[in-house]
């Protein structure tokens, strides 16, 4: 049931792009984060994948950049209602990072520098759906947007695309992350408008 807002007409609709329900388009690039922007020197930066057996893979910054990268152009959908179309990224596909990792785990908990976490099913990280992005719009990814490197999982609400990514822990049981624990949806599909727990 929806209440008609007397006198509200809204803006002309964009026929080229489809917005998920409840979203509006922005051409800016708003910044949201729960705490201060961490500074991570590149010579100390590393990305780790840890499996359910405790085994790990680790990449330094140079090693990450030496991997084959892709340049996805994707739409972003933030749970605070803005969507941004046709954003251009460069990064390493999670298919590349996880291809030699022995694991039968179904869930991942992604950790950031600065202690942010978010949970994602492993299948949502594979098959060309997720990247470790280190460049945005032709430039090094700025710190306030998650640089040196962030997770990019554009088919889910953007809080899943963890800034300042540090470690991906694979596990059999799903463990909720930071926003998921305080009321946001466990999965977060914008097309099904899964904003909050219970949606």
């Amino acid at each position: 049931m929806s209440v008609v807002s007397r006198g509200f007409r809204g803006r002309a609709r964009d026929a080229l792009h489809q917005l998920p329900p409840g979203q509006y388009e922005t051409t800016g690039f708003p910044v949201l984060s729960a705490g201060p922007t961490p500074t991570v020197p590149l010579d100390e930066w590393e990305l780790t994948v840890r499996t359910e057996t405790g085994a790990g893979r680790r990449w330094t910054w140079e090693q990450l950049l030496a991997l084959p990268s892709e340049t996805p152009t994707v739409d972003l959908h933030c749970v605070t209602k803005w969507s941004k179309f046709d954003t251009e990224w460069q990064g390493v596909s999670l298919d590349v990072l996880l291809q030699d990792v022995e694991s039968s785990a179904d869930y991942a908990l992604v950790h950031s520098y600065g202690d942010y976490t978010t949970n994602i099913p492993v299948e949502d990280l594979l098959d060309g759906k997720a990247w470790i992005a280190h460049r945005y719009d032709g430039e090094a990814l700025p710190p306030e947007h998650g640089g040196p490197a962030r997770l990019l999982v554009p088919h889910l609400y953007f809080w899943k695309s963890a800034k300042w990514v540090r470690e991906i822990v694979l596990m059999h049981e799903e463990e909720r992350g930071f926003w998921e624990t305080v009321g946001y949806h466990t999965y977060g599909d914008p097309w099904r408008e899964q904003r909050y727990q219970g949606d």
């Binding site: 807002s5 509200f8 007409r9 509006y24 209602k81």
Partner: peptide
């Protein structure tokens, strides 16, 4: 807090305040 507005033609949009 999410505010949702709906136009008479059914178009609806939301903002957070």
């Amino acid at each position: 807090m999410d505010v949702r507005l709906t136009a008479e033609d059914g178009y609806s949009t939301q903002r957070s305040y």
